[in-house]
């Protein structure tokens, strides 16, 4: 049955997004290669990869990094189908649409590969255009793939804690962590409120009353969040919080992390030497 109800679609969409993020937490808990690394080292090395991708000058170089990313995904017990779907679904596809005009001679003049006459206009695809479009798409795809691989092989709370490595204030990290924790609760509340409304008024509601329901739901959630905010603050005070946030850090760097870091640094240096 076609689902035409806006509220229902929004709530189901939000829930499915959150389920996906919980699912990706499951990937992060698998006993794979990347999962076993110290999150701090992993983040730093992935940033090194992304920077190298951004400064890559040839298609071969980009292809190497993209292949490396896929190999790392396989060694980390991530299903390739799942990974490709997750990485290609948004940004690279979007970039592909942007890159398509670049393959034409209007924007990239050069050696013509083939041409078509459409409505009296001559569309010519050039080798230089294809190369630059491929280069652009592969660069975006590689960067996004590294970022996605990092996020699905690292538990979200660990990523939050790693932010401190970059001297981001603890109060900011703590606020982000608390928001992350409560977003689930609020989505659950919204879902239950929606179900309660649905059980009383049914799915079909006049669009005006539908607007009222959404507005009332937003106001209600706002009021609940304000109340919860006060209660959570009391719970923090009760356990000794005095305005200065402290973090529990139990990361440990092991031999494996050291060798991984060394490997990435050597790879980066080799890349620099080859380029120069």
């Amino acid at each position: 049955m076609k689902n035409t109800n806006f509220i229902q679609r929004s709530i189901i969409g939000a829930l499915s997004f959150l389920r996906d993020s919980i699912f990706s937490q499951e990937q992060a808990m698998r006993p794979g290669f990347l999962q076993s690394l110290d999150p701090r080292i992993k983040l730093i090395t992935f940033l090194v990869f992304i920077v190298q991708v951004l400064f890559a000058r040839s298609l071969w170089e980009l292809s190497f990094f993209y292949s490396l990313c896929l190999i790392l995904a396989v060694f980390s017990k991530i299903k390739l189908g799942f990974f490709l779907l997750r990485t290609w679904i948004f940004i690279p596809l979007f970039s592909l649409f942007i890159a398509v005009p670049a393959i034409l001679s209007f924007f990239s003049p050069g050696e013509v590969l083939f041409s078509r006459n459409i409505l009296g206009l001559e569309f010519m695809v050039t080798r230089q255009g294809v190369d630059s479009a491929l280069f652009f798409v592969l660069r975006v795809a590689s960067s996004v793939s590294f970022a996605v691989l990092l996020s699905i092989t690292t538990r979200h709370f660990e990523l939050l804690r790693v932010l401190r490595v970059f001297k981001i204030p603890q109060i900011f990290v703590m606020t982000l962590g608390t928001s992350y924790r409560y977003v689930y609760l609020f989505v659950e509340m919204t879902r239950n409120t929606y179900l309660a409304i649905k059980s009383r008024v049914g799915i079909l509601a006049h669009y005006k009353s539908g607007q009222n329901i959404v507005a009332w739901n937003i106001a209600c959630l706002w009021s609940r969040s304000v109340h919860l905010n006060e209660e959570v603050y009391k719970a923090m005070l009760s356990r000794g919080y005095q305005g200065e946030a402290l973090a529990w850090v139990d990361f440990k760097i092991r031999t494996r992390d050291f060798f991984w870091l060394l490997g990435v640094v050597l790879l980066g240096m080799t890349n620099l030497v080859i380029r120069s």
């Binding site: 962590g177 609760l185 209660e231 009391k234 356990r239 000794g240 200065e244």
Partner: peptide, 25 residues
Amino acid sequence: VFQNPDVQLFCPTVQEDIVFGPLHL
């Protein structure tokens, strides 16, 4: 110990929640 445990457990993980008190004290 609060009536609603969702109020008391405000950290991203169980471990961080448990150690929050002594860490801040």
